[in-house]
Amino acid sequence: MPVFRPKIIGYYCQYCAYLSDDNFGKVKIPSNVKKCKLLCSGKLDILNILETFESGIDGIFVVGCKEDECRNINGNSRASRRVNYIKKILEQIGISSERIAVYNIEPESLFSNVFLEASAEMGKKIRGLGPIYK
């Protein structure tokens, strides 16, 4: 049986990832994780995320600025609340809400590390859950 390689998209906020290209240069993001830059994690769109899942993506995570440090005041908390809404819908249709998660940059930590940790953690979680559509 072939090994299951989950298809994951990692959204990230351009501000906490400023100098992100440099940042990403220092770490090796797994090839099954696709990076996707947002102007702010608050730009996360519910319909867009659902359609992404619909298209067959197995897992999604969002990396946002640390709490209370959003350039747009509360874009990051908005992102969390939208993700909670999406989780609710996923549960209603029988998809594990674990397939989506928010990661906030902790004070003192480097963006690139958080993105990398999120990739690893989500990768492990989604491998456990299996493909979104059997």
Partner: peptide, 8 residues
């Protein structure tokens, strides 16, 4: 959103 959720 409802249409997308139903499709899934």
């Amino acid at each position: 959103i409802l249409a997308s959720a139903l499709r899934m």
